[in-house]
Design a protein around this nucleic acid. Structure first.
Lengths: 161, 161
DNA sequence: CAAGATGTTCTGCCGTGCAGACTATCTCAT
DNA sequence: ATGAGATAGTCTGCACGGCAGAACATCTTG
């Protein structure tokens, strides 16, 4: 016996799909500060209640120090807004501006198409399954101590703020 | 309506899972030059026929220039071997040494455990499904013009060299 | 044999993650 | 109330990896 193929390696598949995703979305997010990361920050900032920088950074897997200038760029573009938290003036609450929301709607449309292009090898049923499984793993990984995230998300999904 | 949650974003899920993978495997691959990338190179080098650097780099999504010192490190550790291709002396053929194969077997064992830890939120059936779907997307993305990769892999998997 | 293409390596630039320091603010114990 | 320690955000400096471009050896084609 020699060895197994790289294609069987989870890391290879993850990395390849991730790179494909980055490639496919870079044109969909052209002009948006921060690229995919900026898109995720903007999406998070568009939630019902404003979120603190650090909480958001941890949830998105972005370093604190990177978060600073990532938000700087988005703020300079007029897409998000930083406000001191009245309950803790050390913290800054992040929320999307009207312009940011409009830009997000536009970006969402482009992203749908890009994501479908990434998953082009799968039929619609498989795509949903893959999204679901990835999300399940990611949720468990991102918030082992924060079960309310699921509730928050459900509330956000049906649009009731 | 405000917006959808980040958790619904494919990029967020992919990134989070990918980071979780890197975190989980870094101890499994401790001491192996290049970390996950080195592991993939070593796995690829352990194939039946030696492969050219550039071909391998493209398949693994590694930059040419990075591939150079990645292989340098693995070669210095005595795990892989560079030889000029007799058919084209510009190219270098990469193959794993005996020591590299032994190290790979050891690494594979540790990686199995690490990968299962990453997918801990899924039951065995779901894990297989996720691997399968990811692999399908990755294969289509990595080799849109190289259908024989599947055959090569099948040959490698059953150990017939 | 000349001209262009290709594989590998090297150099330099940039974006990103990370560690550490610093300021402003909060919390808690006394 | 007040002082000690913790925390949010920012800034600086370092390291690693991707990327562009050049250099060199070699192959291929006319």
């Amino acid at each position: 016996m020699r060895a197994e193929a790289v294609e069987a390696d989870l890391g290879w598949a993850l990395g390849t799909v991730f790179r494909g995703y980055l490639r496919a979305t870079e044109e969909a997010l052209a002009g948006l500060p921060g690229g995919p990361r900026g898109y995720q920050v903007l999406t998070s900032a568009a939630r019902c209640e404003p979120t603190r920088q650090l909480v958001m950074a941890q949830h998105l897997g972005v370093d604190r120090t990177v978060m600073t200038y990532l938000i700087d760029d988005l703020e300079n573009a007029g897409l998000v807004e930083r406000r001191p938290d009245p309950a803790d003036r050390r913290a800054r609450l992040l929320s999307a501006t009207e312009r940011g929301l409009a830009r997000l709607v536009e970006a969402n449309r482009a992203m749908r198409a890009a994501e479908d292009r990434v998953l082009g090898a799968l039929d619609p049923r498989e795509r949903d399954r893959l999204r679901e499984l990835l999300r399940k793993v990611a949720m468990a990984d991102a918030a082992p101590d924060n079960p309310c995230a699921v509730v928050q998300e459900a509330a956000a999904l049906d649009g009731t703020c």
